[in-house]
Design a protein around this nucleic acid. Structure first.
Lengths: 270, 270
DNA sequence: GACGAATGTCCATTATATCGGACAAACAAG
DNA sequence: CTTGTTTGTCCGATATAATGGACATTCGTC
């Protein structure tokens, strides 16, 4: 109700500012001075100094190095661990990824939507000498990723277009992916039950993504493999099999009743 | 300066209350209603309701289930992941633990002090059919743990006694460990370079702990193995060797100059 | 050594966040 | 149906938190 005016000056709530600070530190991925933080998030210096001190007293952030730089603290790590431990999807995925990574020796990931972006949630780096890895939690444009084709497959065409920011259809190389083309890929991936392609983000990897469905048959996550291009093409069938098996195991645990079986049953019952 | 009076009524700062809420959820390890939270932390209901809503809007906590229960959210997980990623000790330990767990097939842990308690920070559950595991971040009395003998080894006797709450010398079975006895174990462990014992917390495990030193030669962490009793005794030498090797690798990376070499050099130079 | 920029500390002002308590809805027990 | 408990919402009073700006200190550069 009080969200009409936000153009004019308005005191920000401490809590919101505090999480702005935490987010900023997370995205910068390095210790920063309170001053830099204030500049970075466009907040009054005095406020930031006070909040930083409060957060430090709480153990939420910590001094790092001997100049005044601060970074996210251990308490956040413990809170995050508690989340992961309590959340079924994560607990199950963790074991599954370990198995997949071991079997394929490639980097295995569990990915989800984060707002209207894609993010890697869990990762298990394969045991090759040169590992391919990603920052956990870093938001990436949905159309840039294989998983993106699956994570929006429950939306209508219009919903998808409204959901994904227009600028995200511009790929890293500057080319623009036609939304209609993207949607076609989404629909096809849904039918096939997976999506694979040579990564758009770099030139040397091949990505495999398969959907994990929850009880409402919504794709709430994907299991992925990120492999060197030739490896990926050579072992394509084996990799897909491992992923699909893992994902359907997960889906079952989340209460999803198998595709065919379910629709068959519905058809028969209804 | 303004910490004299806290007996009388004083408005609590939103930020502090917010983290009280998060901590409470973490310790309860399950989704709770705002009301229960208010009761649990002894805060005004209206305040808790407002804070819960704010935290939900921030994605710091999430609704879980369809009644009003909330629990820690994914954003916390991402913040925690950023901490772990940026922090040398954690990055390095993670790989090390994976190696140790694979070699020994036992549960491997990295532990640290958390205030005046002991806490498991990282854990890699071995690949046996029956795994032994612990809650990450859960505070445990220092004298109850093998690592506890190592994590305080830089303190004087008096400092140790002042540091560890008296009641923590009462073991889970009700018996009391004499502080002098504990200190003797600390000093001996320091000399040996490790500590092992049959766990005090349960009856079927044997624990191995070895110290990780930082550049200031302070034991900032331990690497541990938690094994079934007979396994532990049978493989004692091999397990210790693996742990000690890993820990010294870690210590080196943190800028610690090897024990003997360092003291020898000091002796020669000074 | 002199200068400007960057960084950290302190304070008064005032918008507002916290809190108690009133209210309503949902629910269970009798 | 009545009664008591639990749960969620709303609102006014006031303690206080967020802010801008003044001041002090450190730093790098010439």
């Amino acid at each position: 109700m009080a969200e009409a005016q936000d153009t004019i000056n308005r005191r920000a709530r401490g809590l919101d500012r505090a999480f702005e600070i935490l987010d900023f530190l997370r995205l910068q991925r390095q210790p920063l001075r309170p001053n830099e933080i204030a500049q970075g998030i466009g907040a009054p210096r005095s406020s930031v100094y006070e909040l930083v001190n409060l957060l430090i007293r709480q153990g939420i952030i910590e001094y790092r190095g001997d100049d005044g730089r601060v970074f996210l603290g251990r308490k956040l790590y413990f809170l995050g661990a508690a989340y992961a431990e309590q959340f079924d999807l994560m607990r199950e995925s963790e074991h599954l990824l370990a198995r997949i990574a071991e079997e394929t020796r490639e980097t295995a990931q569990m990915c989800q939507l984060e707002g209207n972006k894609y993010a890697v949630v869990l990762m298990n780096e394969g045991s090759r000498p040169f590992r391919i890895s990603t920052n956990i939690g870093e938001p990436v444009a949905i159309p840039w990723t294989a998983s993106g084709r699956l994570l929006v497959d429950h939306m209508s065409d219009d919903e998808i277009l409204a959901f994904i920011p227009q600028e995200d259809f511009v790929l890293p190389d500057g080319a623009r992916l036609e939304p209609s083309e993207f949607i076609a890929q989404v629909r096809n991936a849904k039918k096939e039950g997976y999506f694979t392609f040579n990564s758009i983000v770099d030139s040397f990897t091949h990505c495999f993504a398969v959907p994990v469905y929850d009880a409402e048959a919504i794709c709430i996550a994907t299991l992925c493999l990120v492999a060197p291009k030739e490896d990926g093409l050579r072992n394509r069938d084996a990799y897909l099999r491992v992923l699909i098996e893992g994902a359907s195991e997960l889906s079952e645990k989340l209460g999803y009743r198998n595709d065919r079986a379910a629709s068959a049953r519905t058809a028969a019952g209804g």
